[in-house]
Design a protein around this nucleic acid. Structure first.
Lengths: 218, 218
DNA sequence: CCTACCGATCGGTAGG
DNA sequence: CCTACCGATCGGTAGG
């Protein structure tokens, strides 16, 4: 216990993770070398290996700490005891803000998840599913017709699509910033979901569908 | 002109591009080796270099032919002379179908565009901007309040977010396929956009905003 | 002398 | 925490 790690050990790890997240986001995980990470951090490559076991360790830490922060946001909003629509708007607002300040980690989570080993992917995607479920539950509560038509999860993913995709094209400028985008997304989503209809039963070319076909077919 | 290329030369190129698109989508562009591409095609690596100059040539062809197909879809729908809402629904339906059958190329376009050299990125992103402009123009026509608030392009990008993101999470199953998702996206979007409001003027910490602040501040 | 490839190996660089 | 390296594999190309 005496001596312990150098004072800045955890700080150094955080700094490395920040630089690595930016580089992975900009060049992809396989397209980033450990030399590049070391250089960005002002460290030698061997020094890097003092803080992290290997390149893969960086990837897992970036993805996992980000998704855990998102789960924390969900828990915090759930604890506020808001009505469903305000809860959903609160979630959207917090997520947009979090993505804006952790945009590199978020891009790594969404684009480099394919490089995770099964055991890590399972754990991280499991946390992701819990986050999605919190949104889907609120959506099913707000719009029962969507929940009953099994559309709560697909609809939730359309919402995540709008938010996630923002960070691939949106550059804050004089007219619009991230904070301003959140209510636009929320208004569009909350205004549109009431109009979503369950799709007709899928066409079954040979045998008749379980439920009655449309008049034309009969 | 006599003899010319072997009968299957163009077919072989198409087959290579399809395999390369799948591998790039699954492992990323830097994470895919030319040996893997060759093996997937049942060719030796030198044979691959008979059809394409280098690995980068594959990337450019995959991205460019995909975005050119999308531009063609836009042109076809424009030629139908539909009313704005039907035109937008037609665009959404065609794009979802095209993405579904070209999902690997689409993923390469969206995730590996960062590996394009400036001259290629400029050309390909230019075509992409033309596609986005076609959607944004229809949206501005349908909902003038959105066009006047300079929100046509951001709103268009939210629509693309829903559609693009679908192909990262959606797996067609017994209950829902890609064809069924298109009208859900269209209903949500067309139902939601009328409720989108222009954001209030951005906060300017020191000097007063150009337009009147809210009552509380005054 | 062309094409359509093959087996083998090049110069460099990756992660470690 | 550095210089100096390794086993392997990368993208690309030689001779035949």
């Amino acid at each position: 216990m005496s001596r312990g790690r150098a004072a800045g050990y955890e700080d150094q790890r955080e700094l490395i993770l920040r630089h690595a997240a930016r580089l992975f986001a900009e060049r992809g995980y396989p397209g980033t070398s450990m030399n590049e990470v070391a250089q960005a951090c002002g460290l030698s490559k061997p020094a890097l290996y003092h803080y992290f076991r290997d390149k893969y360790d960086l990837l897992v830490h970036i993805a996992e700490s980000h998704i855990v922060r998102l789960r924390t946001l969900v828990t915090e909003v759930a604890a506020q005891g808001l009505a469903p629509e305000e809860r959903l708007r609160g979630l959207i607002g917090r997520f947009v803000r979090e993505y804006a300040q952790a945009r590199y980690a978020h891009r790594v989570l969404t684009e480099d998840v394919k490089f995770l080993r099964p055991e890590d992917a399972e754990r991280i995607l499991g946390t992701e599913r819990a986050v999605v479920a919190a949104f889907a539950g609120t959506i099913a509560e707000l719009w029962p017709h969507v929940g009953q038509a099994q559309l709560a999860k697909p609809t939730t993913m359309l919402l995540f699509g709008m938010i996630n995709w923002m960070f691939t094209w949106f550059r804050p400028d004089g007219g619009l910033d991230y904070e301003a985008m959140a209510p636009i997304v929320a208004d569009l989503f909350c205004g549109g979901v009431p109009l979503v209809k369950a799709p007709p039963a899928r066409k079954a070319p040979r045998q008749p569908a379980r439920r009655a076909r449309q008049a034309k077919a009969g």
